[in-house]
Nucleic acid binder design. Structure first.
Lengths: 138, 138
DNA sequence: CCTTGACCTTCCCATGATGGGAAGCCCCAA
DNA sequence: TTGGGGCTTCCCATCATGGGAAGGTCAAGG
């Protein structure tokens, strides 16, 4: 029913992907070239919007464009093995967990240092001491 | 004693900051201009190396260059209030915690989806279903 | 003295995903 | 016909980092 062709602005509003990014995805080959009106305006079908929402959701989950390209290919391949999809997802989870670990270590270190910093008008500061001397100082 | 002037390559090895980044820090004003030999080679004193190690440590803790500029200024200001340093540190911790939360949410969502994906040779895949239909599907 | 190789200099380009903005064309409604 | 808003392409910026080219410099060894 609603297979109307919409312009890039309407597609952006309908999918939450900015017009800028829609053009970028096309330019980099993540998405195929959009249809065009006689005047050169891009047009998007309901199927195109579906793909855009797919990309949007994957971005929200932190997948890189490279990974999204893989996921899109799997999505469009009716005979894919779910194992392939799961592998991409779990690789990404491992990456997320690694990054979380790194940020956690930073946060904990800083929290420890901040705890020991009285935080008043005096200049003495274990935080600066650590930065100046590295973790092995003292 | 060891106040020898070293070249940028030696400074890089001594501090763990690449020569590229040392030049970049100078170019952007994070660090003052390095001394130069008659031939135009940059030279670094023991004090310069100390500042480079400070920057390196701060980068390891995830501070942005903007924040590091603030921290360097505080470090060099003998009359700073430790409260100012603590504020910068705690702002950064809050930022780290926010990012950790975002990554955690992504990881948990994907883990839930992956759990429900049998991950065999069959094409049915709740992960793709979620991406295609969004979190409200089903 | 000259060569060789390691090092230094500056300059340009790329990353990944995104936004800003300018110049110019197009379309619809009044 | 005019005005305003939307579309096009093109260029630039972000943030921190690396790669590489073209050319100058320095120290060691023949």
């Amino acid at each position: 029913m609603s297979a109307a062709s919409v312009t890039i602005g309407e597609a952006a509003r309908a999918t939450g992907v900015s017009a800028k990014m829609i053009r970028y995805y096309e330019e980099t080959g993540l998405l195929g070239p959009a249809g065009r009106t006689a005047a050169g305006y891009r047009v998007y079908s309901e199927g195109d919007l579906h793909a855009l929402r797919f990309v949007r959701r994957a971005r929200d989950l932190g997948f890189s464009m490279r990974e999204i390209a893989d996921l899109l290919a799997l999505w469009q391949d009716r005979s894919r093995a779910s194992a392939a999809v799961k592998a991409v997802a779990l690789d990404h989870v491992a990456d997320l967990r690694r990054r979380i670990g790194e940020l956690e270590a930073m946060a904990r270190t800083l929290e420890h240092l901040a705890e020991r910093c009285c935080g008043d008008e005096r200049p003495d500061c274990p935080i600066l001491d650590d930065l100046a001397g590295g973790p092995n100082t003292g």
